[in-house]
Design a protein around this nucleic acid. Structure first.
Ligand SMILES: NC(=O)c1ccc[n+]([C@@H]2O[C@H](COP(=O)([O-])OP(=O)(O)OC[C@H]3O[C@@H](n4cnc5c(N)ncnc54)[C@H](O)[C@@H]3O)[C@@H](O)[C@H]2O)c1
Ligand SMILES: NC(=O)c1ccc[n+]([C@@H]2O[C@H](COP(=O)([O-])OP(=O)(O)OC[C@H]3O[C@@H](n4cnc5c(N)ncnc54)[C@H](O)[C@@H]3O)[C@@H](O)[C@H]2O)c1
Lengths: 209, 209
DNA sequence: CTATTTATGTGAAAAATATCACAAAAGACT
DNA sequence: AGTCTTTTGTGATATTTTTCACATAAATAG
């Protein structure tokens, strides 16, 4: 089975292809995609090979066709709906972001315990947490985003699982455990910053060669 | 040299240790840290071994001491200052987040081309983009965050490099290339969501075993 | 129509990363 | 003081991931 980094790369190829398409490009070479995704050309071709995606020898790949094939792999052939729990700074930023819609991702509703965030008339409605269960079940939602404070994250995870959510992006700085039948990706900005700090310092020291 | 995932894990161990410390725990075992970071105990010990971090056979590790050692590795023994370019939804969320301060990370200023975002009296001041160069040089800032729209990202990267910034977290959905002497981490929410969509669908299909 | 060029597709090789498994150290118990 | 128990620390081993390198197919040119 494909691994996580492989799928990240597919997303990046896709991103590049969308831009090329917008510029009316017809063909693209593994070399080009490699540049866009910051990997080697061999990696690009190997990734495609894994999913049986093929181009034309000598002619490279047709942008339109390749995009379609990647879309199929990534489940972008249909709109994917997410709900957001925790409508604070991050939650709001996500709900306001217009870029998702262009990519077959839709954040359909927000949920919060704070009644002052409640607004069922908004373009993307914000409901009370108690309404989560019914909403998810009625609308067959499979995906959720956790953007509540750390101490509430585990509890929200359990609630989401109960309602039937199967894939979660977690912004709380707690490493949530993947239950049996659910995929979780923990994103921690602080960890990202610490990574940058470490590698910046290391390369500075290493440079004295 | 340590790799990226290894440093991510160190951050996670650190996060867990901070919580244990707050609860007045004195000792911790590799098994405990493994649980917190969702890895194996052998991995934890191997990671420590790589940095010459050692505990007491039989006695595990002393929380306080271990924390200090990890802090040293991660550069958390002194405050690390970041600037943020692009004070929109994401930029604002970051600048408002109080959690960074507790972890020796400080976002010291924001910069934006939009004059209406400008506010040099705010707790964290927001300056005009033109002021970036002097500010970074005068204050010896090494780290930056890019949270401008995708079309502006490359240009901001180049500007940051010129001013002397050496480590960057990029939120724009463009895979920026690492220049020679600079570390860049590209974070793309859409890619993260696509990852979740893919693996949720795959595990659903795989489950029919 | 044949030769040449060029980019793909993919096994084989190499490199990177994670796991195993167990000797060694140190506290606990008698 | 000696034995037992438990957990670390780390070479050896296994697995995963990436890169290499080249045969193969298609397009172009002569
Ligand atoms: N803002 C940042 O830049 C940033 C940086 C790093 C990490 N994070 C993490 O991301 C998460 C969200 O951050 P934020 O800045 O948006 O926080 P925030 O405090 O602005 O918003 C949190 C929201 O969650 C709601 N909430 C609290 N408990 C809830 C519950 N049980 N159920 C439903 N809603 C609940 C609150 O009412 C609030 O609206 C936090 O875990 C934070 O640690 C944020
Ligand atoms: N908000 C989200 O949830 C989300 C999700 C995915 C990706 N992103 C990406 O993160 C980045 C920031 O998103 P956002 O929602 O905060 O956008 P935003 O539009 O709210 O804010 C962008 C800010 O950048 C400023 N800006 C524009 N050009 C600039 C320049 N050349 N120099 C300095 N400032 C400049 C604008 O004035 C604005 O204040 C974007 O690249 C976006 O694609 C955001």
């Amino acid at each position: 089975m494909a691994n996580k980094s492989c799928i990240i790369r597919l997303s990046r190829y896709r991103n590049a292809l969308m831009r090329l398409k917008a510029l009316n490009f017809v063909k693209v070479f593994s070399e080009n995609l490699a540049d866009a995704a910051r990997v080697t050309a061999a990696q690009v071709r190997k990734d495609f090979s894994l999913f049986g995606i093929s181009g034309n020898r000598r002619g490279g790949y047709l942008v339109e066709e390749l995009l379609e094939q990647i879309n199929r792999v990534l489940g972008k052939d249909k709109l994917q709906k997410f709900i957001v729990v925790g409508v604070g700074n991050i939650g709001r930023a996500l709900l306001n972001y217009p870029g998702f819609k262009k990519n077959e991702i839709e954040l359909v509703a927000g949920f919060d315990i704070d009644a002052s965030k409640h607004n069922r008339e908004a373009e993307v409605p914000i409901f009370l947490l108690e309404e989560l269960n019914d909403f998810v079940k009625d609308n067959g939602i499979k995906f959720g985003i956790i953007s509540v404070p750390d101490f509430a994250a585990q509890q929200i995870l359990e609630l989401m699982i109960q309602t039937g959510i199967r894939g979660i992006l977690n912004f709380a700085p707690i490493c949530l455990k993947e239950p049996e039948d659910c995929v979780i990706r923990n994103l921690n900005f602080e960890t990202e910053l610490e990574n940058i700090i470490y590698f910046t310092n290391v390369t500075e020291k290493t440079e004295v060669r």
